[in-house]
Design a protein around this nucleic acid. Structure first.
Lengths: 162, 162
DNA sequence: AGATTATGTCAGTACTATTGACGTAATTTC
DNA sequence: GAAATTACGTCAATAGTACTGACATAATCT
């Protein structure tokens, strides 16, 4: 039953292998840019939630300000992300992807998306929703608010080009 | 449908959050021992495949010998893992968990297993097999050989206490 | 005997992360 | 309006995990 001592070792291990290979695709591309996995995560969330603030980004990534600093600076210097002064609160910096940033985010997501679709087919899992629900249930309940299931929360700000 | 530009951003993101929280449970425990995630992975596979050699471990983890060295040495020094000279080939070092090592491996796996079971319940995924198959399909096909679905491959060696 | 294999180790480097401290500008509170 | 708080940036030091390259030793294979 691949469950020994009442522990689900099989899925624990599969999750490790799956995530390892899931991240290997973008890692290859990132290397060409001199970027790492941290850049990917920042770019992903800036692309997904354009206009999010630095504080919000830190909260999503669960890293410290100092860890973000270098990575974000590099993405800004290389013209993948821009910062705009927050309209209501001028202390805030709203983060937006540039066209270049969106292109890279898409290029990184493409192989991952392909892998997911292939996996759903291979495993005969016709209902994408099932996998979605399982993964969501794996997230700490108090942190599920961070998740954007359905369409991105375009809250009415200007999310166009900058 | 949470698919924009034909990219499955929803599952990409869920996978990130799910893995982040999935690893957070053992990370807390590991901190008490002065260990990191690398120690966990080594201990996990030594526990799952007792008697595996250093070369086999490197192949599973997909890291270099130098990266493994420090981590493995610490696990040996702290009496979580023991090395035995390979019976057929005396150059090889077979790795076995000690009772202490098995206890720690179990303590680390327990919260992860609990999370998985809770997720399966919450998401209404009655068939564990479906998730198992999906995760396995996410792994690079040429690397699926590494995976031990079903019971561990007790190949007939002595896997007892050492 | 010589080549190859399995493992260990030394040295140097890179990336991602941490804590702690300090500075600046903007907003909120009293 | 002065003081406290908030949002962000930055400097310095450290840790954990990974890498490449080089070299050593013992055991096995050719």
């Amino acid at each position: 039953m691949s469950v020994e001592d009442g522990i689900d070792f099989a899925i624990i291990e599969l999750f490790f292998f799956a995530y390892r290979d899931f991240t290997s695709d973008p890692d290859q591309i990132l290397a060409d840019y001199g970027f790492g996995r941290a850049h990917h995560r920042v770019l992903h969330f800036v692309n997904r939630r354009p206009g999010l603030t630095v504080a919000e980004l830190l909260d999503v990534l669960k890293i410290t300000k100092q860890s973000l600093a270098r990575v974000l600076k590099q993405l800004i210097d290389t013209d993948h992300v821009v910062q705009l002064q927050g309209p209501r609160d001028r202390r805030q910096r709203e983060l937006y992807p540039t066209a270049k940033g969106r292109a890279l985010a898409l290029a990184l997501a493409r192989p991952q998306s392909r892998r997911i679709h292939a996996a759903l087919q291979d495993s005969g899992t016709t209902e994408r929703t099932m996998v979605e629900r399982f993964l969501e249930a794996m997230v700490n309940p108090e942190l599920r608010a961070q998740i954007d299931v359905g369409s991105a929360k375009m809250s009415g700000k200007n999310h166009g080009e900058h």
